[in-house]
């Protein structure tokens, strides 16, 4: 297995298959820790992890916080709405102040693509991208890949259909990048206005035909309709989207028998996914959440659990 050499986790495009496999292997051990009565190991005792969130988030922030705490790191959270960021301080200035308090690693979420890179260049801390604009959300993709591997026993040759607002989805971009490295084949599907031009260059198929996308899929990943990122009208109406693309029980039958149903959350029930599907026997949506902690523990451990250079 390869040795971990990165200081930051900004984008899965910077990682190799070996890196991803090491994260998955490490995460498997951490999953066992979370199942114990005492859900804590001392690996990162004395380290401090800051959560710098300029965008709303529940799942990801709480998941990182629990991951850090289960490794015995100390944590602090800075949310834009209730911090100096709201008073006009730049993100980098906030980060430099956090660094001045001897924080070792910062987990950053920001609406601007590339914000984590600015912190990686401008501070000495390790930086983990927890979602930047429409660009990248590496730990979400890693936990998705972990869940697929755990459920199907492999990623090579697995066919994954990603359905919905591909255009605004950092989850889709990171998943495409990671899944292709892991030998999966990916088809993206959505209304033509929400399919980015040239997405095929990432090595995926692209279609507006939901039947074509779901046929033969081993994994069906529905994406949230991101109303907050759609300033312009990409859709004639939500009702039309639902009619054409919502993952319903009938549509799910097009996919392979026992295909996994995934969703990065938060779900808009009845829009991108029918409630019966989200709660159905093929859904692993809540297992994704459980696995998220193990994967983030692995990332934090690999980035912090060694001598600083």
């Amino acid at each position: 297995m390869s040795e971990w050499k990165h200081k930051h986790l900004l984008d899965l495009q910077d990682t190799t298959r070996g890196d991803i496999e090491l994260i998955l292997e490490t995460a498997r051990s951490f999953k066992e820790v979370s199942s114990r009565e005492i859900k804590k190991v001392p690996a990162l005792r004395g380290k401090t992890v800051a959560m710098l969130f300029a965008e709303p988030s529940t799942r990801t922030r709480v998941s990182f916080e629990l991951a850090a705490k289960r490794l015995s790191a100390d944590t602090l959270t800075i949310q834009a709405a209730v911090s100096s960021l709201a008073k006009g301080e730049t993100l980098l200035d906030t980060a430099l102040n956090v660094e001045a308090m001897n924080v070792d690693l910062v987990v950053v979420r920001h609406q601007a693509s590339g914000a984590p890179q600015i912190l990686a260049n401008g501070t000495k801390m390790s930086v983990v991208n927890a979602g930047d604009g429409c660009r990248s959300h590496p730990t979400q993709a890693l936990l998705d890949i972990f869940t697929i591997h755990e459920k199907l026993g492999r990623t090579d040759g697995v066919r994954v259909a990603i359905v919905g607002d591909i255009m605004h989805s950092r989850v889709a971009r990171s998943n495409i990048s990671g899944l292709i490295k892991m030998g999966a084949s990916v088809v993206v599907c959505g209304p033509s206005t929400l399919l980015p031009v040239g997405i095929e260059q990432m090595g995926v198929e692209s279609t507006t035909d939901i039947t074509k996308a779901l046929k033969g899929a081993d994994v069906v990943m529905a994406l949230r309709m991101q109303k907050e990122r759609q300033q312009d009208s990409f859709l004639p109406s939500i009702a039309e989207y639902v009619r054409e693309f919502c993952i319903t029980p009938e549509r799910l039958k097009l996919a392979n028998h026992k295909a996994l149903v995934m969703h990065p959350g938060p779900t808009n029930r009845g829009i991108e996914i029918a409630a019966e599907v989200a709660d159905g026997p093929q859904s692993v949506i809540l297992e994704q959440v459980t696995n998220g902690i193990a994967v983030r523990m692995a990332v934090l451990y690999l980035l912090l659990g060694r001598r600083a250079e």
């Binding site: 297995m1 040795e3 971990w4 090491l22 292997e25 490490t26 498997r28 051990s29 951490f30 066992e32 820790v33 690996a43 004395g46 692995a298 451990y301 690999l302 659990g305 060694r306 001598r307």
Partner: peptide
Amino acid sequence: LAIISKQPVIRET
């Protein structure tokens, strides 16, 4: 852990 340079691979308990 804070001293060694080569990080051990964590395996399952």
